[in-house]
Amino acid sequence: MNSNYSPKGDILIVDDTLDNLRLLSTMLMQQGYEVRSVTNGQTALMGIQAQPPDLILLDIQMPGMNGYEVCQRLKANPQTERIPVIFISALNEVFDKVKAFTAGGVDYITKPFQVEEVLARVENQLTICRLQGQLLKALAQEKELNQRIEAMATVEERNRIARDIHDSLGHALVALNIQMETALTLWQTDPTQAYEFLKEAKKLGSDALKAVRQSVSEIRSDPLQGKLLENAIATLTQEFYRTTGILPQCQIDLSYPLSNQVNTVVYRIIQEGLTNICKYASATHVQIQIHTTAEGLLLVLQDNGTGMSIDMSADGFGLQGMRERTTAVGGQLEIHSQPGAGWRITARFPRLVA
């Protein structure tokens, strides 16, 4: 016996006529099918429950429980409802085709049997069944893949929110810390001036709290909040001026339309860049250049501060966030810095129509 033998399908024949059972069984086994036979509906239901077949050939006229009833019970059971049923009927019997299909049958064959017809109808239904199984498997795999993609998207969304919190809150807290340090320094010598710095620190603290709430509630998905990019950058530079006393020199040309995605990335890069200058640069001059052409946008942010070896901060969360944001819209980011030579951030973006 060949241990690698695999039947073409498992078929259950239900017929109270033994001659029919023998004829159909022989016919199908010769074609490589595995065949089981029973003579009544009740036994058939128990056998199907114990070992569901791939296909059922079901006689209509049987004592006790006819074929219609057997089929209806199968279709009412979630475990057996997908098994295809081909009804068997004699030519001289009254065969209600509408009732057969309403009960759940998928096809029918008539006695006396024509070998070619029986084999064609059986193989047709088994092929349909196999294709349905493959489709269900493919759908299950697609569902699993979609779940994995959703999980990855969730992680990416968390990272995005984390970057938003880092960019918005970090910017506000750096400015707040500088205001508080200045107020403490002036507290004894110039209380009035110190009080003004404390008032500004309080405002920055309120802004930081608002940024956290907005990020958590995902309102920060649009940090521009409907503002034009020029106006949003002007707000950043004014905040930078109040914090450091340095008013960045801006050269902005937005003659060509930009997508909101690119606007947002440009805004975030400038925001993070100014935050880093506050933290590390000790600069006296800051320049922001933005130029658009028919091909895209060029952003340059540079200062004349102390600078540092780029390898020291290449993995910093802020710079990583800049790179990720730029790449996400198809842009390129270059960061240059050397001790004593300041920072220069250059970003190039392809033009996306707003």
Rank of each mutant, 00 (worst) to 15 (best):
Q42W: 01
A347R: 01
T110M: 12
I288S: 03
F197H: 11
T346A: 08
G226M: 07
L28F: 03
L58P: 15
E34H: 10
M180S: 02
S89I: 03
I252A: 13
G318S: 04
T326Y: 01
K97Q: 11
V98R: 11
L204C: 10
Q31N: 12
L229M: 06
Q271P: 05
L126D: 10
N276T: 08
P223H: 04
T306G: 00
I13T: 02
N231D: 14
L57W: 08
L18Q: 12
N304Y: 12
V35E: 11
Y33M: 07
I60G: 09
Q332M: 11
I109M: 11
V106R: 01
V70P: 05
C129H: 14
K8S: 01
M46Q: 15
Q141G: 11
Q179A: 14
D59F: 04
D15H: 00
M152F: 04
N177G: 09
R121V: 07
F240R: 02
D167H: 14
R130H: 12
L319C: 06
V14K: 00
A140H: 14
L74K: 02
R121W: 13
S89Y: 02
S37Y: 06
M1N: 10
D311K: 13
N4Y: 08
Q249K: 13
F101G: 03
S282G: 12
M308G: 08
I88V: 11
P7D: 08
L298N: 09
L145G: 06
N159Y: 11
Y108N: 14
A328S: 15
M62A: 02
P339Q: 10
A211G: 05
N2G: 04
E69M: 09
R268F: 00
Q31I: 06
A153G: 05
R351E: 00
G47N: 13
I219C: 07
L136V: 11
G64K: 04
K199Y: 07
R344P: 07
L12Y: 10
T327D: 13
P350H: 09
I165M: 15
I48G: 02
F95W: 02
L258C: 14
V286C: 08
R242T: 10
T17G: 00
T80S: 02
